[in-house]
Nucleic acid binder design. Sequence first.
DNA 1: AATCCACAGGAATGATAGGGGC
DNA 2: GCCCCTATCATTCCTGTGGATT
Length: 342
Amino acid sequence: MIRDARVLRAGFVPQEVEHRDAEVNHLSSVLRPLTDGDPAETAIVTGPSGAGKTCISQFVTERLREEALDIEATYINCWRNYTRFRTLYQILDDIGRTIDIHRQSTPHDELIDRLQQYDGNRTVVILDEADQLEDTSVIYDLHSLPQFAVICITNNEEDLFGRVDDRLVSRLRASEHVRMDKYADEQLFDILSARVRCGLEEDVITDEQLYSIADAAAGDARLAIGILRTAASTADREAHGRITDEMLSDAATAARTQIRQKSLDSLTPHQRIVYDIIKDDGPVSPTGIYEEYVEEVEDPRTKRTVRTYLSKMSQYNLLVAEGTSRDRQYTLVTEATPSPTT
DNA sequence: AATCCACAGGAATGATAGGGGC
DNA sequence: GCCCCTATCATTCCTGTGGATT
């Protein structure tokens, strides 16, 4: 029933991108100078999650590499923990300059020097989720090196600009912007059916079912494909000839909880306790949370630290903060469960 | 209107862990 | 084993904000 599992995987870059011609052309034109060996501007790609930012960035760079021999590309996901050191390290690793670098005992400056001295091919560096960088100076580091072309991918450009220093902001504002929106349901449907054509046998899933996936995913292509993948693998495992509606709705909830679980697993015990307090007590004020927290643990951390936990968890989309100042309250992110119809 | 209070989050600092060089 | 490096986490101090209190 599964013909080609690759096309359903997260991170698969298709041969043809649906409904993103303008954005693809725009980004291509920014990177075009590279094919003549010239430096290219920094590009910023913004849009909500699952809008195809990562996909078109990789698609464009791959196509560029088909056209010109001497272009390298490296993809870095800055999501979580990506410090300046690790980012630089990974870039160097990808271009093969880490042979004699020791993971834990090399100064930053040494890494920068390596990059500066790099005299190999022009390289496209895709910084995915760049707004998640702990230390945005990496962008600055790269920006000033002509042999690297940078694509910064971010959900929200203000989040990114708010965290880089002023020198860079003005330069980034001047750089090329590719803005993307959520997919409409029909577009999502087209994307899904293209994947189904390559990935699944015939008649495994109906058009109506694809529409209901598109609807549940609310414009998020990554989520939509995730749902399709999970449902397909259930059907495959149970040796069912086709995907049932029940598998689909299970897959939809699974896809959501999976994302949440991943974030949850990365919490420290103390953070987890704070999370559970909010889960059990519903909307709580920061002081309420802290008092409860002090009750529950042996060696409580400071208030400031708990505040850091709270803002971290909101960033991970586990919590939402409502209200400002004194009436601020924290709640768990309400599970969005869009119903198939309506 | 002035003041107070709870809160958010930046910056600097310190403690601790772990890898490599010697 | 000691020294040097970085990472990571917590703490302390501090500034800014906005609603509440007087």
